[in-house]
Design a protein around this nucleic acid. Structure first.
Lengths: 336, 336
DNA sequence: CTGTTAGCGCATTCAA
DNA sequence: TTGAATGCGCTAACAG
């Protein structure tokens, strides 16, 4: 591998000069710069990033901690973060951390070893307290899809409550009143907030959400969705519409319904949340709330980089709003 | 950030000793090791990876070049590669390279700057020649989902031909004879080989694949699938089964059929390829060929690491086989 | 505008 | 078994 010294020797200049032309900063004579650049091209010189990071004490890399890139939602998140780094010449390091607080902390740790000052963290297992401690130690740490009031300006999050309300209102607008909800057993903050949103919107319409109308799935995926709707059905609950915690569960619901010969949307309407690619694979295509992950991740990445370079940035907040995507899984009862 | 010197000072030993206990190699006295370890834990010392990489001339990281992590297939590939690195204490660097040969070369270049000696490369735009040149320069470079005969022992690939044959035979076994094929317009190597496989299997059954039975989609996604089946339909072609290039196109086909009131599998059977998560989201769940990406990527990662550490490894080849996953999109004409 | 000097944090000789 | 010395490739003062 050819080094800066080689270039300097061949070009007959000092390494400092080469360094200056490589980084395009500092004053370098026009002819000198051309000469050096020529040698660089000829020799195919590429600066050693590790050496750069070592001496400059920053690695110009952005860490992204997510459960798993292979999950479409998080893959999209990672891509969104990467987009933001293109202009900054940053590289993104993805750390998968699935299943436990320890895994998440290890991931952060590993990123720290790489000296990446900017980190976008999607935590599912760490407590607010733990995150606050981390945030204190790492100025460039930003949380995505999580809200911690003490760290408001370091959180990029979605208004799940309003999102759930909008989804609910859509059903209401279409003339639905017998509305069931499918949620996840572990009831994480998102699930809680979305359920609250549904309740609020329903209350505003003078409808009370009975506990019996809440179907619970063990996992927040297709299986969980199927299980939850199965529970509702076997309990003899009557409903004409379902608000699912997310798209995966919604699709499970559609499958579960189909297994009983119940048609969507003719017999029962279904609304998802997230707007994953998968939501258009389903027949009927799912009406769902679009979750702007890509934009949010991109925004979070920029914020993390900004904070890592200048910790005392303004205390603005970073709230995003989901919006309804109307497709074919909701029947219009109002116009009939 | 605390350094090896800090630890050495506090523990009252030299940095060499600390270095030895950190890397758990070299002889270190039992009590001395304990003492140093204690200080390491207390101070929360973490070696600077960049410095390690610089001095040891290897970064212990594995590069993965793919079009985009947000595409489920490639996200899974990335995860598979990562799995392989867990035991080796390697870190994986993902480089998205979408759309052009230049993008792919840039991605490789960036990885080289990080001095990662092991790279798993999923190339879609580079010519065999280009790849051969790269392979020569980078001993730890391995190609996935691509076969180049001169580089056979550096390629981890799938037998698309036999896979397509198996898919075709499945249809034949179920009594189908009016079989159409959906493929992608650009006819990349995979598409070509899969089509050949279909032809072979059909020929063996005494059936000739008419050109008119080949539907073409502009893109290899849902839209392409819908477009292709639309073409077939509007040309008045009769068929009772469809072999799609991949799952995405297959799902597009199901949608396209549905739009014409044609039921799957009652009226037309559909078989996909890849076994993406999306294939079970569809109703009916798709019968498809399972593509063992995760295992292949994991294998490729190990191979890349092995080659990077010891370039002259055996000339074995690395061929994987897809297998049929029977779900609900194929009707059994034979037993009726 | 350019070169010289001095490290960045660590692993690795080589002595002791 | 341990420590002192050296340098990986590069940037950042500081001189000139």
């Amino acid at each position: 591998m050819i080094t800066i010294k080689d270039v300097a020797r061949v070009a007959g200049v000092s390494t400092s000069t080469v360094s200056r032309v490589v980084r395009k900063q500092g004053k370098v004579g026009k002819t000198c710069r051309a000469k050096v650049q020529k040698v660089i091209d000829e020799l195919g010189y590429r600066p050693n990033i590790n050496a750069q990071a070592l001496v400059s004490k920053k690695s110009n890399s952005l860490g992204v901690v997510i459960p798993r890139v292979s999950m479409p939602f998080f893959g999209t998140l990672a891509c969104g973060a990467e987009e933001a780094t293109i202009e900054n010449q940053y590289r993104v390091l993805i750390s998968n951390a699935l299943g436990s607080e320890q895994a998440e902390l290890d991931a952060i740790d590993s990123l720290l070893q790489h000296r990446c000052g900017a980190i976008v963290f999607h935590s599912m297992y760490c407590s607010d307290k733990t995150l606050c401690e981390l945030a204190e130690k790492i100025p460039g740490l930003v949380f995505i899809n999580r809200f911690i009031s003490k760290l408001a300006h370091r959180c990029v999050w979605l208004d799940n409550n309003l999102g759930a309300q909008e989804a609910t209102r859509h059903l209401l607008d279409k003339g639905h009143t017998e509305i069931a909800v499918i949620t996840r057993k572990d009831m994480n903050p998102d699930a809680q907030v979305r359920l609250d949103g549904v309740r609020t919107a329903l209350n505003n319409a003078g409808i009370k959400l009975a506990d019996s109308m809440i179907g619970i799935g063990t996992t927040a995926d297709m299986d969980g969705g199927r299980e939850a709707v199965e529970n509702l059905l076997s309990a003899g609950i009557k409903f004409k519409a379902i608000l699912a915690y997310n798209d995966n569960m919604a699709i499970g619901v559609v499958h579960g319904l189909d297994a009983h010969g119940i048609r969507v949307p003719e017999d029962v309407s279904v609304v998802g949340f997230d707007d994953l690619l998968i939501s258009v694979a389903c027949i009927p295509e799912l009406t769902t709330m679009h979750y702007p992950v890509r934009e949010m991740a991109s925004y979070a990445a920029n914020l993390a980089i900004e904070l890592s370079e200048n910790p005392n940035t303004s205390g603005r907040t970073h709230l995003f709003m989901p919006h309804l995507i109307e497709r074919n899984s909701v029947a219009d009862l109002a116009s009939s």
